[in-house]
């Protein structure tokens, strides 16, 4: 039988899309560098409490504003706290915020975008209207508004819970900060994901294999989840990688402005903010968190670019 031959012999079967993409990604040095930096970040964020030489809160008023030394690689701040320990804890904050915000934003965006693109109609029109609205308002402004309008009710609710349960967890102001930061950032971050997924779904839903799946009598839900979405994840992964970096910068920006995570919880943003006031005298207080933030952001962008090339074989030079 002439057509009984197989193009690839079974032994090099693993030429699937993902394996090819991984191979291409590994050839991209910048992307690998980004991946390494991010691996270090994840490790540091995960094991922070066991890595830090000092507690991030413990003050040593005899050792204030020390320049970097062997004992304090990044120096100490105006309260004598070890800056490196605080940067490491800041990594936890940044990472936690970035991951949670991105997960929530991606979930909302993927679900809404997929439904809008697949079914179209009035839902699609409404969604596009909402995304246009959200994306046309400056992000900072929107976060300030959401923060301001939500802080009061959430604080009241937490206080009420505390009175009910006497659980000190409800008096932890850091939790309110996190909830507010997550909530408001997720609320402004999902529209780009929704648009991306919608555009993907729009182009994929008319492909022949989707028509073939319809001709098999499969339900819309199965067609959407098994035929359309798996073919749409490539660009989404790229967007997520870039989005994680953006979320970290956003969190720092909000904390810098004092509407994000509040002291004493360390965040790169509020460390930069504190450092800025005294940078002429103690440049290391600004430099340490700012440099780490910059390196991490660049790493995310390198990885995103690399993924973009790796997952898009037609764009290969």
């Amino acid at each position: 039988m002439t057509d009984g031959t197989i193009i690839n012999p079974p032994e090099d079967r693993p030429s699937s899309l993902w394996r090819d993409a991984w191979r291409r990604l590994r050839r991209n040095r910048l992307a690998v560098a980004g991946l390494v930096v991010l691996a270090v970040l994840v490790f540091v964020a995960a094991f922070g409490p066991w890595l830090t030489p000092y507690d991030f809160l413990s003050q040593n008023l005899d050792a204030r504003n020390l320049p970097p030394s062997l004992g304090h690689p990044f120096g100490t701040d105006d309260l004598g706290r070890d800056v490196m320990s605080r940067v490491i804890y800041g990594a936890r904050t940044a990472f936690l915020v970035a991951v949670l915000v991105t997960v929530v934003a991606v979930l909302i965006g993927v679900v809404l975008g997929a439904i809008a693109g697949f079914y179209g109609g009035r839902f699609d029109k409404t969604l596009m209207w909402v995304t246009d609205m959200t994306m046309s308002v400056p992000q900072l402004l929107l976060v300030v508004v959401i923060n301001a309008s939500l802080k009061q009710p959430i604080s009241l609710w937490m206080e009420a819970r505390y009175m009910e349960t006497m659980n000190p967890l409800y008096r932890n102001s850091a939790i309110i900060d996190f909830v507010l930061v997550f909530g408001s950032m997720a609320l402004i971050s999902w529209p780009p994901y929704a648009r991306l997924v919608r555009a993907q779904v729009l182009s994929i839903r008319n492909r022949p294999y989707v028509t073939a799946a319809r001709a098999l009598g499969l339900t819309n839900r199965i067609i959407l989840t098994r035929y359309v979405m798996p073919n749409a994840v490539g660009p989404l992964i790229v967007a997520i990688s870039a989005g994680l970096g953006t979320a970290m910068v956003l969190e720092s920006a909000f904390s810098f402005l004092g509407i994000g995570v509040n002291p004493p919880t360390p965040s790169w943003g509020n460390m930069i903010s504190d450092g800025l006031r005294v940078w002429t005298n103690y440049p290391h207080l600004l430099l340490a968190p700012a440099a780490v933030l910059a390196v991490v952001t660049v790493a995310f962008n390198f990885l995103g670019d690399g993924l973009n090339d790796a997952l898009n074989p037609k764009g290969q030079k």
Partner: peptide
């Protein structure tokens, strides 16, 4: 269908 190259889901 007409085109067997595109009528099968590439990721399945």
């Amino acid at each position: 269908f007409q085109d067997p190259m595109t009528s099968l889901n590439p990721v399945m």
